[in-house]
Design a protein around this nucleic acid. Structure first.
Lengths: 158, 158
DNA sequence: GTTCATTAGTTGCGAATGTAACTAACAGTG
DNA sequence: CACTGTTAGTTACATTCGCAACTAATGAAC
């Protein structure tokens, strides 16, 4: 029986339309472009940027809260904070009421970086968003919210 | 002059509404949930899954083409392929017309993994997409395309 | 045929990452 | 007080990643 073996037992996935794949590719492309900006101007990583952004917004926080707010693993936060402290971009003040934790704030140097990056980050986002209409932007935001919730649910059971 | 220093020189970014951040968080949550699936069932990473998915779809490809199709760095492809070959999930056939490259195909073992994962991956995607209406899904796909193009443009100049 | 540029793929290396184990500090129980 | 459990944060370790440098093969120029 010289018959070609019946290969496709399963209907193939088209990777290029597979949502998790697409999300990942887009997010990575965006992250990479943005990271170049942070890196070039101040030698900061995305993790460091997130710490700076959080402290820029909230003034004074513990490492744990920064992690919760910026969704970063505590070791990632710990290392980003350590590097930023080393470079004197932020200052640690131990909490006398609970010596396990410490309050973190941007120093003047840290805030200078923040002030420099914020407008550029917003411009970057703007350039991204320019590809979309106002309505599309709102849509996207809503869709991302839904996806996030759905994915986090999955995280639990699977 | 006992006046509080005028802190906010710049209007703060709200990280949680910053598009690049949101994309990253959502993509990571989705990836992580999906990776658990691949990992648990066959001990394969996302990179390995992408190679398998590409070969499942196209039967026979070079490493370079796999990289182009699945948007992975060539070293990532190289290492994923090496591991899959080691585990006899794919076979290498050198191209006699050009000895630099080799054709890769799934072995039966490789295809078995593919056949096992495809329905589960689709189910996962379905569960994700269930959070969205048909229209929203179409929207999202279009939006991601636009963002990707925009980000890749940025990659060039910045 | 020899030289030079290019390409497919691999590998060395440093940097970044998450898990798990750890330290130190707190909080509650007795 | 001692004992137990929990929490904030750090560190050790193994893994992953991408850049850059490399090898080997091809192709084009002459």
């Amino acid at each position: 029986m010289n018959v070609k073996s019946p290969k496709p037992a399963v209907s193939p996935i088209e990777l290029e339309h597979f949502l998790p794949y697409r999300l990942n590719v887009v997010a990575e492309a965006v992250s990479r472009a943005l990271a170049r900006l942070y890196e070039k101007r101040h030698g900061t990583s995305i993790a460091e940027w997130r710490v700076i952004a959080t402290l820029g917004q909230y003034e004074r926080m513990t490492a744990k809260d920064i992690g919760a707010h910026s969704r970063m693993h505590k070791t990632k936060v710990s290392r980003a904070v350590a590097r930023l402290e080393e470079r004197q971009c932020l200052a640690r003040t131990s909490n006398e009421q609970d010596m396990r934790e410490a309050f973190l704030e941007l120093t003047d140097a840290g805030r200078a970086i923040y002030d420099d990056l914020v407008p550029r980050a917003l411009a970057f986002e703007q350039k991204l968003s320019d590809a979309l209409s106002k309505e599309e932007q709102a849509n996207l935001d809503a869709l991302l919210c839904k996806l996030e919730v759905s994915a986090l649910d999955d995280a639990g059971d699977a």
